[in-house]
């Protein structure tokens, strides 16, 4: 399959942009129709958190796709996906700070310090801020060879995000386990290819 030309890539990007807005549109729709369920704040928190995690895993799947199939062009969608992950993470944390805790900073600080699942979630968000801030072409140019090591933080963000979900679940860990599994596969592919490359260089 030929890689898309400039115009086609533009269309694909526009499509992805609209697709990534669907979870937000759904929340707004349900909210306007008073159909967010018995615990609407929990619903919004879970939904934005889940979508941040899903989009993060999508972001992390472009490189394995290239390594496994040689299809490189989707990597051009990675920045947009990463920024949407950050967008949903922002909505998630805004829901937590505003709707859930009404800017009760003292309570929020206590919650972060005392409860590991909140702490890793908070850490994941903090670590994703520099990634979002340095995602522009100008920043890539400015940071040069330091950009790549900085953006490897995304692996830590992903691990923390999965832990955040895992630790908050009361008993049924099926769902976080699925995310952990997908993340492990995505990371394992990278490790396998890196090791192979190193071995090749040694020989």
């Amino acid at each position: 399959m030929l890689p898309p030309n400039r115009q086609q890539l533009g269309l694909i990007k526009a499509g992805l942009f609209l697709l990534a807005l669907i979870p937000l549109a759904r929340l707004l729709w349900l909210g306007m129709h008073d159909d967010l369920g018995a615990n609407p704040i929990e619903f919004i928190e879970r939904s934005t958190g889940t979508w941040a995690l899903v989009i993060l895993l999508v972001t992390l799947s472009f490189t394995p796709l290239r390594l496994l199939t040689g299809t490189a062009w989707p990597v051009q969608l990675r920045r947009m996906a990463g920024l949407f992950m950050f967008f949903y993470a922002c909505l998630h944390i805004t829901t937590y700070v505003w709707l859930d805790h009404w800017f009760d900073w003292q309570e929020i600080a206590k919650d972060i310090i005392k409860h590991p699942y909140v702490l890793v979630g908070f850490a994941a968000f903090m670590l994703s801020i520099p990634l979002a801030l340095t995602s522009s072409n100008a920043m890539i140019k400015r940071l040069r060879q330091r950009w790549k090591p900085l953006h490897r933080l995304v692996y830590l963000v992903a691990i923390f995000a999965v832990l955040h979900f895992w630790w908050l679940v009361k008993k049924d860990i099926t769902e976080p386990m699925l995310y952990a599994l997908v993340l492990s596969v995505l990371l394992a592919i990278r490790v396998a290819f890196t090791l192979r490359k190193r071995k090749g260089q040694l020989v």
Partner: peptide, 22 residues
């Protein structure tokens, strides 16, 4: 006395709106 993983100091009253405080 908190649950080891989350707070027990406050609660979310079911049946409120998106803007109901804890």
């Amino acid at each position: 006395v908190d649950h080891p993983r989350w707070t027990q100091a406050s609660e979310r009253r079911i049946g409120g709106s998106v803007f109901s405080p804890r």
